[in-house]
Write a protein that binds this DNA or RNA. Structure first.
Length: 360
DNA sequence: AAAATGCGCAACCGCAGGTGC
DNA sequence: AGCACCTGCGGTTGCGCATTT
């Protein structure tokens, strides 16, 4: 049954990389006679190769209309679009890219574009945001978002409420951790309400333009500040644009967390958090604070240090960490911290189904 | 400087669909 | 209808080079 592989009967045929002389022979033969019967071609061309190998060499390398070199942004976006549409139909995709071979596109996909998509948090197979089946984590994140959007964090006078702010900071830390694990699966706190009013296109297939091979990820979460205090939600008056939110951040840079001095927390008074005041009280690390659509701090200073028991939130003057990579060190310290157990316990208590749905 | 590791790419392999006898 | 053959496709492998340890 079936047929034997074409090369089985061609005993002793050469395999492996082609020599320049072989290329010359094949090219000369095809230029003169064209190609048609690949099986008989090697003998006629004087090559000790199987027909399949000759075809492959011609189609993928020797053809005069082959276009070599780096893929352009336009080609990349075409590939992604077509891949989302057609899947691994490399020859069909190649049909839309003159001069590119299916093999070249396949290789390029597997070595470059897959990685890019993964880094962007997009599943290269489904072209959907990756979830890694972390629905429980998503649930936690969405609970947080829901609580924030429902105004459960207080009525715009959080500076007066150390516990609530502490909770926010803890949860933002956790939120950031989750975002690092699954950057696309975990939505940003600041985007929940703004998305409804100012929808942002998904950075997937359809919006994959020449710049979107490495599009800016969702803007980092932040605290929104208005005249009456800090609010974790952006009201219609204070909707930062997507671009504005992102400005000042390097690609792939991890957003940091708010750093607040204990003194600031103690001295803050309701209704006094003007821009200047806020700057005194809240220093942002890489996490932006907004006054309206204005970014109050550039993401260049600050640290991640949320000690759950002491609430000793570092002042920027003593901050030691500022980069995204340091975040992991801080995370590690946080996890090592002997007080962490109680923090996690309280966090789990907060999020367990049996606990009060809105504990803060 | 040498070994280990990672990466990119050309080439190979097996299978499936199409076609002709 | 069944078989053999050819071609094309997609997955995988292996080599050579570059980078890291």
């Amino acid at each position: 049954m079936g047929r034997s592989p074409c090369c089985d009967q061609d005993k002793g045929v050469k395999k492996g990389p082609w020599l320049p002389e072989e290329d010359d022979k094949l090219t000369a033969y095809i230029n003169e006679n064209g190609y048609g019967n690949w099986r008989s071609l090697p003998k006629l061309a004087g090559l000790n190769r199987c027909g399949k190998s000759c075809r492959l060499r011609w189609m993928n390398y020797l053809r005069p209309d082959i276009r070599r070199g780096k893929f352009s942004d336009e080609e990349e976006s075409t590939i992604v679009r077509l891949h989302a549409l057609l899947g691994n139909k490399w020859s069909k995709i190649a049909g839309h890219l003159p001069g590119r071979t299916d093999n070249e596109i396949k290789n390029y996909w597997n070595t470059h574009m897959r990685k890019k998509l993964l880094q962007m948090g997009i599943d290269p197979v489904t072209h959907e945001p990756r979830t890694n089946d972390l629905s429980p984590i998503l649930d936690v994140s969405q609970m947080l978002a829901a609580a924030i959007n429902n105004g459960q964090f207080g009525n715009n006078n959080l500076l007066n409420n150390n516990t609530a702010l502490e909770d926010i900071l803890k949860l933002q830390l956790i939120h950031k951790m989750l975002q690092i694990i699954t950057p696309k699966a975990i939505p940003n706190i600041s985007s929940f309400k703004t998305n409804l009013l100012n929808p942002k296109p998904e950075p997937v297939v359809n919006s994959f333009n020449t710049n979107s091979v490495n599009p800016k990820p969702d803007p980092p979460a932040g605290l929104f500040i208005n005249q009456s205090g800090i609010t974790p939600e952006a009201t219609s008056d204070f909707i930062p644009s997507y671009e504005n939110v992102w400005d000042g951040f390097e690609d792939n840079q991890l957003p940091g967390l708010v750093t607040v001095s204990q003194e600031s927390l103690n001295t803050a008074k309701p209704g006094t958090s003007t821009t200047t005041k806020v700057n005194d009280h809240i220093r942002t690390g890489m996490m932006p604070c907004y006054y309206g659509d204005q970014l109050l701090e550039t993401p260049s200073t600050g640290s991640v240090s949320v000690s759950p028991e002491t609430t000793s939130l570092n002042h920027p003057s003593t901050a030691q960490h500022s980069s995204g990579s340091d975040f992991l060190e801080d995370w590690e310290k946080f996890l090592d911290d002997e007080t962490s157990d109680s923090c996690w316990k309280s966090f789990l208590d907060l999020t367990s189904p049996t606990s009060s749905p809105v504990p803060w």
